[in-house]
Write a protein that binds this DNA or RNA. Structure first.
Lengths: 328, 328
DNA sequence: CCCTGTGACGTAAACGTTTACTTTCGAAAA
DNA sequence: TTTTCGAAAGTAAACGTTTACGTCACAGGG
């Protein structure tokens, strides 16, 4: 049995209240008492019980991250940032894979409520009314990452439309005239629509064709990237450069192009999105529009802990030029 | 303020004990009472407080995973398995990045003790005496993943020596005679030594040269893979096939080879290790010795929860043949 | 008709803290 | 000398459960 505060108190010849005060740095004891108590604590190897503390303080110093998939380059990079910042701030983080599954998400939300988590970081998915209500009721603070909602909830993300616009513009500045796009899940309001809009808008602004058939939809994943690239090639045989909605899709496209013997960037230029580790490991190394994933994770915990006033953050994207975009 | 059991009890006209019994499926109440209480619970939207429960039961239904790096293909795949199985069993999992840093690890261990986690999954690192003692004192159960120790602690891993042996043998069966290896961190007792041993042993058994200069050391990472490959090429110019200690290193090697215009598998064959997502996304798709990462995660929680009797598990490795190994 | 057993509860004591209220005591103020 | 005040502590009531025990009524056996 681990020692409790009562044991420490008895051994030090004081009351539990005094021990508690010393542990919490409150006032109401002499320097001498403090020394003695701390010594006893060391001797006994006493460790406070956070559960008991949580029961009374109603704070658990625990955060939860809800994400669609744990083993995902995008998600795990953000997660790393969350873990780091939370650890610095003395919080624990528990992970919850939603699997884009409503009932699984709700079940997690219930567990989180029972466990009295202090804050929730909700990532990459649509916050339904059901989720929102559940979280509101449990009284945890909430922040959205890479998504947003109609409710007044702070979020941390990149300006997708602008980032897509910039990526596309970069391509035309490099002299490409026949552009294509490998997009994510068709109809996805959060991650697809704004990027497609940015892509089209950039083309329009540069007086370039932006027909719908220049966009091939996929699901952000590697294989869908290859498939989408193949479709795009059929529909736009003279395509010179393609903007991909994720690095994974870009790498899928790269793969297909390799297989077909089409040179990148010699014949076709490719630009990715996210700047996950897949980008640096690709061959050739993938030029991509970076999101500050790790930073997003860190900022998210700052916000959810209320250190940063509950304001949304639009983090800036950034081109990272590697070797898949050529000058034409 | 959320409702408590007391509120429910009052509204249902029973005592808290009865409510508790009903919630926990114990006996000692009539069907009728049960119905009434459950109805009240639904009406009020009552949710039990796991903190209070934990205080008295000394069980928190929480697991912790300690791993060197969160955003790592290997780790996140295992983590995904852990999350899945834990969720099925009704446990939460909290993540702790050790960063191969002793003091950070100890700090985490202290937090975990304070938070009374039920079990710890310790991954990919050496369990020092200090860690071991700390965990023993806190009374959490423990399981090792992809590592082992001198203490009698259950582990889940693959037989690295055998897997390396098999991978190497596969290469010689394909007709290669001049082999090389890209190894992980030199001296790493857990992840390097056994693989190097398996590599050498296979070469010896096939009567092939196994000089030390055929092994180039790195750190399991992508760039170290490219670097190591370059060194190996200098030292063994006629190398025909190389066994890499991780997929990431293999992909790094692939990259270097591409850059040098050396064909894979035409001129040199490459085989990886782990079968992370990097392997499928590589070009050409990487042949690799798979570890059942996701399964390892799941088994680890089974063991740590004591469902599987506290026995170590040596999971079987498996060749996954893709396109980086040719016949000579 | 009494005794015993059992089902259906209620009571209250834990669990290990925090914290609002005391209490005590010595020193400064009046 | 008395009053006042603050520092240094102690007491005990929370926090929301679980659970050992106690109570009560009723049924069945003798």
């Amino acid at each position: 049995m681990a020692y409790t505060m009562k044991d420490v108190a008895k051994r030090a010849g004081v009351s539990v209240a005094t021990v508690s005060r010393i542990l919490n740095g409150l006032s109401g004891y002499s320097e001498e008492t403090k020394k003695r108590v701390n010594q006893v604590i060391d001797e006994m190897g006493y460790q406070p019980n956070a559960i008991a503390r949580g029961l009374i303080s109603k704070k658990t110093r625990t955060l939860a991250v809800l994400l669609p998939e744990v083993s995902d380059l995008f998600a795990s990079e953000v997660l790393a940032g969350v873990e780091e910042e939370a650890h610095e701030k003395g919080y624990s983080v528990i992970i919850c894979k939603t699997a884009k599954n409503g009932v699984r998400t709700m079940k997690y939300l219930q567990t989180l409520r029972e466990n009295q988590v202090d804050g929730i970081i909700f990532m990459s998915e649509t916050l339904t009314k059901e989720y929102y209500e559940a979280i509101r009721k449990m009284g945890a603070s909430l922040v959205l990452v890479s998504t947003r909602s109609d409710y007044d909830i702070p979020y941390v993300k990149v300006d997708d439309r602008q980032a897509a616009y910039d990526a596309t513009s970069y391509l035309v500045e490099k002299g490409h005239r026949s552009l294509g796009m490998l997009s994510g899940t068709e109809g996805d309001l959060i991650a697809t629509v704004p990027r497609v809009a940015g892509f089209k808008e950039a083309l329009c602004d540069h007086g370039l064709p932006a027909e719908e058939h220049r966009i091939a939809y996929g699901d952000f994943g590697f294989s869908s990237g290859a498939l989408a690239m193949e479709r795009l090639l059929r529909r736009v045989p003279d395509v010179e450069a393609v903007f991909c909605a994720s690095d994974e899709m870009a790498v899928g496209a790269l793969s297909l192009l390799h297989r077909k013997g089409i040179k990148v960037p010699g014949e076709i230029s490719i630009i990715g999105y996210d700047n996950t580790r897949a980008a640096e490991m690709a061959f050739p190394p993938l030029t991509t529009m970076a999101q500050p994933l790790y930073q997003m994770g860190k900022k998210a915990v700052d916000i959810v802990l209320g250190h940063r006033s509950a304001e949304s953050l639009l983090l800036s994207h950034q081109m990272v030029e590697r070797e898949t975009v050529g000058q034409r």
